[in-house]
């Protein structure tokens, strides 16, 4: 078979493996609980409700339509946080597989991120219907939603892939990532509007990809307006850099990781 033919055949096989493994991990997860898929909806909702009780009711947030505001932010932030945290450990958790067969290591974090993406899309679908029925009806801005989702997915991969190369060398990094995710939740406008922060801090939010993604979802779903495309392009650009770096790193460590991740 020609070189290009073999590359295409391998690529098609890896694509099937990614799809099948993501399906297998979701099926496993569903089988482990009684209410199965509904946990995907319930988990971020419960988290958002706790925050609503604390920030919205006890401290009386000034943000209008605070409950949908919080839910939209929480659903998309949890997609990022869960994908990154699980994918960071994806190479270590498949150490035994790597001792038996060869797969490009980038396949492992992609499987995990895609599994998380299905869970998010399931929950996000319910959320979008709920917001459009009770708060803001769908507008033309919904056309930008696939773009925001694609940029968000790219950003998740851009962070998850390099971290998956790091964790086999420093397992304690998982605790660091967990703490960092908590911090990022507080520091990315999950519970408050970024426009309410002091002017001196605006630069930070302007360049914070997570804050920009959360704003984009809220603009579309809640405020019926187009997202800031310039900021989305910025997030896409840094995601591409992260992705390229992460893929290079995993390629560089391809035959080293099975020795380290034991």
């Amino acid at each position: 078979m020609s070189g290009i033919g073999a590359v295409f055949q391998d690529f098609s096989r890896y694509a099937h493996i990614i799809r099948f493994q993501a399906y297998a991990s979701l099926k496993n997860e569903i089988a482990r609980t009684y209410i199965g898929v509904f946990w995907w909806l319930l988990e971020p909702t419960l988290y958002a409700l706790v925050m609503y009780l604390v920030v919205g009711v006890i401290f009386v947030s000034k943000t209008p339509q605070y409950l949908p505001f919080l839910l939209i932010g929480t659903f998309s932030f949890q997609w990022f946080a869960n994908s990154v945290s699980s994918a960071a450990n994806s190479i270590v958790s498949r150490a035994s597989l790597m001792q038996q067969i060869y797969l490009p290591k980038v396949v492992f974090p992609i499987i995990t991120v895609l599994g998380g993406t299905w869970k998010f899309l399931f929950a996000f679908g319910f959320l979008a219907v709920w917001v459009s029925v009770f708060y803001t009806p769908p507008s033309l801005a919904y056309c930008a939603l696939p773009l925001v989702l694609a940029v968000n997915l790219m950003f998740n991969l851009a962070i998850a892939i390099p971290l998956s190369a790091w964790i086999p060398y420093f397992r304690d990094g998982l605790a660091v990532i967990a703490a960092l995710m908590q911090f990022l939740g507080f520091a990315s406008g999950l519970f408050y509007q970024t426009k309410d922060v002091p002017a001196s801090a605006q630069v930070y939010f302007h360049n914070n990809p997570i804050a920009q993604l959360l704003n984009a979802y809220r603009d579309i779903l809640l405020y019926a307006q187009w997202p800031d495309f310039e900021r989305l392009a910025f997030v896409a650009a840094i995601s591409l850099v992260g992705l390229a770096g992460g893929i290079w790193l995993l390629k560089h460590l391809d035959l080293e990781l099975p020795k380290v991740a034991l």
């Binding site: 493994q21 297998a24 099926k27 496993n28």
Partner: peptide, 19 residues
């Protein structure tokens, strides 16, 4: 290789053969 306990034998055979 790659067997998942909640998948059927057929599904596992597909997954494993691909791997």
């Amino acid at each position: 290789v790659g067997f998942e306990s909640n998948l059927t034998g057929r599904e596992n055979a597909r997954l494993s053969a691909l791997l």
